[in-house]
Design a binder for these strands. Structure first.
Lengths: 254, 254
DNA sequence: CGTACGTTTGATCTTTCTCAATAATGGTGG
DNA sequence: CCACCATTATTGAGAAAGATCAAACGTACG
């Protein structure tokens, strides 16, 4: 990330995409107090059961929402990408029901919870935009449920790759033909309800079928359209601003 | 439901539980315009892709959120119980990404979307309460993801039975020792990511092990504590007002 | 240069699905 | 009230997807 950019500029872009903000609203957001923290992969942003005092905004790096079962199995239910406000889910609830953890190393801007609550409740335009962001998160999670509940392993992996690529692309974070997957196969397994071993075999299968190429963690889409078909992927549920119901072809094309 | 009750009183109770409302706020909610509709089981409250003009409040009966895959498999991602506002998820998004359908016959109070938007944005106490309700819905869905992604069939069924019983009990809709399950085994399968056949076998298994008794759709808990253990069920994620972190024993006990 | 972590591969085992058929159950029209 | 029909529930047998166990292989990094 360019060091001369305001740390919250990614978040601001994201909010602005939801509702046209006046310059005072924009200033309000950029003037939010915050404290930057540099974090290693694996460190916790929120722990299950805690009362979060800050709402973190991901400046760079990736994070994920996670919950453990009583038997110690992990389930990942969302991946956060730069620009995401990581704690909107907890902003008005006093006990976090899940944990948020860094997937890679990165930077977090901690905004005091009260400051964010204040603008959500009292600045109706900003409030509306931020509510919309949390509703979109829910929409993404609904698709996540469908993915895990009703698709087989190959479909699940193809789907999650498509979702991830499109989300990155919309944020302008992604060279068009492929991307750097910020997670291990084990984490991919925890996100899709599979085993790491099986994820590995499925990835190999997708590669063997000419749908993707892999070099280390880098995924290259050799057949983007076909991969979407395999993964039963349609982007409407991402509620990408400006696209509405029309199916826009993915920009990243040979 | 008593005919002399205000149709929105269940919703009001639900909102009030989230934030202490003054009498003017309470009046604002009860004075929301609405139109009652009687619906049969299976009828749609919202269709995928539609722009909902009303936000339905479930007066009585049950409903569920649902999405279909391209191959036509159904996944249920939430069950709505009386008092729930069914369209909060769509209130600020213009295209519904999922469908909502009646599980049983019942009554819906359709509140114009704009009226609800207005009070959420401009009445900060009500707004806060309603935002909290949608955040709790998200929390329940996160647990739903865990259930489907990381628990085996027996655990999933046990868990969903526990969740349902507790939610009903909190709303005062439920005789303490058991309840009437408002769904078929096929719907239970669509909610848990299993097959109807397997759901049937698991239910039989739970009964054989003395955890539940069944008469038609009625589920009787013969070993409530043990069933929770089997289902890895803890109620914190339901964010039940007044319970906070303390583990309160289920009231319904022999 | 060695250690730790992540990936890859093989062999075997289980859970759950599929297909198919039968039995209840509830609602409906006569 | 009864016979019939459409759902829903139950059961069995066989197939398959994915899990588990175990080991070897790479690669990054201290």
């Amino acid at each position: 990330m360019a060091t001369d950019e305001h740390p919250l500029s990614g978040f601001l872009r994201d909010v602005t995409a939801q509702a046209p903000l006046g310059s005072d609203d924009r200033a309000t957001i950029l003037n939010l107090p915050f404290k930057l923290r540099r974090l290693d992969a694996g460190s916790y942003l929120v722990r299950e059961g805690s009362l979060p005092e800050h709402c973190g905004v991901l400046v760079d790096g990736f994070a994920f929402r996670q919950k453990m079962t009583g038997e110690g199995a992990r389930q990942i239910m969302a991946v956060c990408i730069p620009g995401d406000a990581v704690d909107l889910q907890n902003i008005f609830l006093d006990i976090s029901d899940h944990a948020v953890q860094m997937l890679t190393k990165g930077t977090i801007a901690d905004v005091p919870r009260a400051a964010l609550q204040e603008i959500v409740l009292n600045r109706s335009t900003i409030g509306r935009a931020i509510i919309q962001l949390t509703l979109i998160e829910s929409s993404i999670m609904r698709e996540w449920v469908v993915n895990i509940g009703r698709r087989d392993a190959r479909e699940r992996i193809a789907h999650i790759l498509c979702e991830f690529a499109v989300r990155l692309e919309v944020r302008g974070l992604n060279p068009s033909q492929g991307f750097e997957l910020p997670m291990t196969q084990e984490q991919l397994a925890d996100a899709t309800g599979l085993t790491p071993v099986h994820v590995n075999r499925v990835l190999k299968g997708l590669e063997a079928d000419g749908l993707i190429e892999r070099r280390r963690r880098h995924i290259h889409f050799t057949a983007w359209r076909a991969l979407q078909d395999v993964g039963d992927f349609t982007r409407t549920y991402l509620h990408i601003p400006g696209e509405d119901q029309l199916e826009v072809a993915f920009q990243a094309r040979p």
